[in-house]
Every structure is written in structure tokens, then in C-alpha cells.
Design a binder for these strands. Structure first.
Lengths: 210, 210
DNA sequence: GGATTCAGTAAACAACTGTTTGCCACGGGG
DNA sequence: CCCCGTGGCAAACAGTTGTTTACTGAATCC
């Protein structure tokens, strides 16, 4: 019933990690209906059922908790991206798989996605910067994958990066579009996203060839 | 020294509009460093130099003020968009003009742009919906302009809308990229944006032709 | 097994919040 | 000219906030 951390970490640290995670979970839940800069420390501790002062044993302030949430949120996305990039397939196939993967990810971790979309341009600098840094790493990773494909022969590194940026931006836009949409609207969004990606990949194939 | 509203509106209403605008201005300024859901009513009135209770003479709550800010912010953008769409020119030319127009707009109304980027996915539902509605109208407008071009012959209405959506999203992304960037970084961002638009317009020309 | 570390506690702090009340002063319509 | 409508004010309201303090009790170390 208990997690694997118990065996290797000792009761003491395990308990600490547990309430730390509880704080993160509570915050993420509360952030579905407000933004980080208005989320109160007491609000979070109240949900967890712990004294306000206990918060300081884990985070200096809410901004620090926010940064921790960024890592947690984008970590799962990172896994998904790698999985999609790993497959070497037909362009059309890759597009379908990508859009489906994004839809699935949003369905599974809606709070994480909402948090990222909301705080990407939000009011807390440290969190904004953490998200920007992580998304930049995504871009590099996508760029590397793109460069390895035959279609990219003759492309400058900079051009590959701009294409990767376009893909990452499109991914984030699509994800947050899924977020605030009913299931049947989701179908239409997936459709639009697929066509947009198809158009981009079309432009890609004709780049510097026209 | 006074505005033109005096002549047509009477001292009474003119004064009211003046403090209403002062409230909006103060809020917009404060929102450069936080998000709407954490902006306090007293905070705004304090900056304006007016009693807290005076706020209620103009807005029911901060959400209502936020919606007013949306109209103000996207109004100016609307003007810019129309101007760019109006010119019928070579594709390459249109791209350059667009990117420059966006850069210029961000330079001139940074607070407005920041507000939209921040609250587009922010914590206040009414404001989110107002922004979404306004951006949808942008999309329609862009779609209409695109449909009128020769390149779009044979395109389904839905395909035109998805392309328009891609442009609008790209515009917002580019604008907020300009926002949190130094002048020399701005140069690079403009360059990337141009290449991305070029790639999209390339895909557009080959749509359903391959 | 005794000493020590430390996650979590309870209580108090001043500062702040949104909202309501009754009031005033003054511009504008009759 | 006077009276009504109303934008703005001062004061008080009950709640809430972040942060500090001194503390307790149990897991850990030697």
C-alpha cells in the first residue's frame, strides 16, 4: 500500500516527502480556479490539514512551490514527447500519433496542463522563467529529432530551431485548446490541429525548394 | 488640454469617465507585475487617489474591470490587424509588414499586450471568455481576408478557418515573445517569426496540390 | 539508551482585504 | 433659482493574510 520510497529513505524523510507532495497536490488543485499569484499559503495548508507554519519546512514561499510544480508538470510532458519523437514513421502517421498523444495527455493530467498554460505568462517571474527554460529544452530536443530526419538535409541549424519552435508553440496552443473544450469540441480541435500540422509539414517539404 | 469628451458630454459625465479611465489605467499598470486574480480593489483605488468605495460607482468587481480592459486592449490590436489585412501585396511583403506591425504594436502598448497574454489563460473566467470571444472574431476577420485571396481558390471554409487560426495563434505567440525580450533579442524573434510565416505560406501554396 | 535533530504545532502579530453605511457637495434639469 | 440625482468620501465591519515565536514529540545517530 505504501510507496517504494519507504524502503530506501527512512520513515523520517518519507513522511516529509509525503506532506511536501500533499502540499503540491493541494496547490495544483486550488490552481484550477485561480492563478498562482493569488494563491495563499494558508489556503494550501488548510486543505492539506496542516499548520500554516509547517509550509516553511518545505518552501520559502509560494513562488518556490510554483517552480517545483513546473518541474512536476513538464516532467510528465517530457516523457510523452520523447515517446512520440522516438518513432520513425511516415509523416502522416506521426501527426496522428502526436495529436492523439497530446489529447491523451490533457485528458490524463488536466491540472498540470492548465497550470503550465496559465503560469507561462503569469504574474510570478520565477515560475515564468522556469517554464520558459523547460520549454526551451523541449525545443532543443525536438530540433535534434528533426535534424536527424532526411527531410532536413540542407537545412541550417537556425532554420531547424525555428521549425522546432513552431511545433512546440503549436503543441502548447493545442493542449490548452483541448483544456477548455467539451469532448465533442475536442474532436473538432484534434481535427484542426491535424490539418495545421499537415500544412506545416507541407511547408517543410518545400522549404528552399521553391 | 482637456479631451474632446467635455464638449459633448457635460462636466458631470466627463468627470465620471475620467476617473473610470484612471481606474483602468492604474489597474493596467499594476497588472504588469501580477495577475488579475490577485489584484485588489483597494490597491487600484489607492493608486488613483480615490476612496475604495468609489470603485463600485464604476465596476461591480475586479472581474468586470478586467472585461473592460479586454475591450480596450484588443481594440487597438484590431485596428492594427485591419490595416495589415487591407493591403493587397506580395506574400513576402505582407509577412514583413505584419511582423513589423506586431513589433511596433508591442513597443507601443506593452501593458495591453502583456495583459492579454497573461489573462488569456488566467484565473478569471469572465475575462478568459471575453478574450476568447474577441480572438475568435479576429479569426473570422482574418479568415474572410484569406478567403478573398486567389491562393485560397478551391479551399473549404473549414480549411480557411484553420489557417486563420494558425495565423492568429502565431500572432499572439510572437507578440508575447517580443514582450519578454531585450531589443537585440527582439531582432532575432522578428527573424524567426518571419521565417515561420514564410514556411506556413509555403505550405499554404502547396495545400491539396501535392 | 541517552542525546540530538527536526517536522509539525499553537498562538499571537500587525497589516491588509472587500463591502456596507450614512453623508456631503455640486452639476444639471425643471 | 431651487431641488433632485449622483460621484466621491470617511469610517467602521468582520475576515483574512504572511510571518515569527517558543514548544513538543518522535525518528535517528552514536
Amino acid at each position: 500500500m505504501s510507496s517504494s520510497t519507504h524502503a530506501t529513505l527512512g520513515v523520517r524523510q518519507a513522511q516529509k516527502l509525503k506532506t511536501r507532495q500533499a502540499l503540491l497536490d493541494a496547490a495544483l488543485r486550488l490552481l484550477e480556479e485561480q492563478s498562482l499569484s493569488s494563491l495563499g499559503l494558508r489556503e494550501v495548508t488548510r486543505v492539506v490539514g496542516v499548520a500554516p507554519a509547517a509550509f516553511y519546512r518545505h518552501f520559502r514561499d509560494m513562488a518556490e512551490l510554483g517552480v517545483a510544480l513546473v518541474e512536476e508538470s513538464l516532467g510528465s510532458l517530457h516523457v510523452m514527447i520523447r515517446a512520440v519523437l522516438a518513432e520513425q514513421q511516415e509523416a502522416e502517421e506521426v501527426i496522428d500519433r502526436s495529436v492523439e498523444a497530446v489529447a491523451d495527455h490533457v485528458r490524463r493530467h488536466p491540472a498540470h496542463v492548465r497550470f503550465i498554460a496559465r503560469e507561462r505568462h503569469g504574474g510570478v517571474r520565477a515560475v515564468r522563467e522556469a517554464i520558459a527554460a523547460e520549454l526551451a529544452r523541449f525545443g532543443e530536443e525536438v530540433a535534434a529529432a528533426l535534424a536527424a530526419q532526411e527531410v532536413s538535409q540542407g537545412w541550417s541549424a537556425e532554420d531547424v530551431r525555428m521549425l522546432a519552435g513552431l511545433y512546440v508553440d503549436h503543441l502548447v496552443m493545442t493542449a490548452s485548446a483541448f483544456l477548455e473544450a467539451s469532448p465533442e469540441e475536442g474532436q473538432a480541435i484534434a481535427d484542426t490541429a491535424r490539418r495545421q500540422l499537415r500544412l506545416i509539414s507541407l511547408g517543410r517539404r518545400h522549404w528552399r525548394a521553391a
